[in-house]
Amino acid sequence: MSDYNFAYLDEQTKRMIRRAILKGLAVPGYQVPFASREMPMPYGWGTGGVQVTAATLTPDDTLKVIDQGADDTTNAVSIRKFFQRTAGVATTEETTKASVIQTRHRIPEAELSEDQVLVYQVPIPEPLRFLEPRETETRKMHSLEEYGLMHVKLYEDISQHGDIATSYAYPVKVEDRYVMDPSPIPKFDNPKLEMAAIQLFGAGREQRIYAVPPYTRVVSLDFEDYPFEASKADHACDLCAAGDSYLDEVILDDAGSRMFVCSDTDYCRSRRAAGHVGRLGEEAA
C-alpha cells in the first residue's frame, strides 16, 4: 500500500487521541484537550474530525464521509480518498452500510445504529466563546455549571429577531450537565443527537475532543415562552418527495426559479430508488 502507518497517524498519537475519546465518553459533553497534530490539509478542512476518525478506524471498518449531507463535495471526497490511501479501508456512500461516518454540518437522515460511530468536524468547540472570549473564564463556567450566559445569547436573538434566530450550532445541554456546541449542524438535526450510535467531536485547531455516548440525554436550550423548534424549509423534496428531511435550496436560473432537495444525498437517492418521485423528480432523475 504505502509508507504511511495505518490511517496516517503513528500508533502513539492514536493512543493519545483514543484516551481523549474515552475520557470524552466518560464525561459526556466535556471538552477534553488533546495534542492536535499537523495534518496534510488546512485547518477548516476537518483536521480534528480526521484525527478522531484515524484513531477510531480499524482495517475492517467501512467509512462514509459527508459534507453538508453530501458524499460528493470536495471536502468529503478528499477526506474519503485520504483514508482510502492511508488506511486502505472500504468506503461507501450508503449510510446504513458504514461503520464510521465522518461528517461536516449534518447528521444523516437515516437512523443510526449501535454499531456505528459518527465523527463530527468542529470549528469552534466552545459554546460560550460568543460572549466570553477568555478561555480561563469559560472553563470555570463549565466546571461550576454557570450557564446564564448561554441564555443571554438566546435572549439577544429574540430581542433582535423576534424569535430564536440561531439556526445552526444551536447549544445543547448534555445529560443535565455540560452545555455543548453540537458543531454547525442545523438545529433541525438537534433532536437526532439522542441516538444509538457513538458521537465523537473533534476540533483540530482548538485541540479539543468531546463525545456523546449512545442514548444520552441531549436537550436544546430555550426559554419557557420560546421553546426550541427543530425547523426546516416548509417544502417536500422536489426529487424524492420526502417531507421529513432537511432541504437545501437550489437556484435554477436567473429568473429566480428554485428547487428544494434533500441535503442528505444518500437518503434522497435511496428514496428515489424505492420509487418515490418529487415535483421535479422526473426531469432531474
Binding site: G148, L149, H151, V152, Y155, F223, D225
Partner: peptide
Amino acid sequence: IGERLMAVGGPHYG
C-alpha cells in the same frame, strides 16, 4: 440586566 436572572433554571423570556 437579565444575565443574573438567566442563571437560574427554566428561564422565561417575557
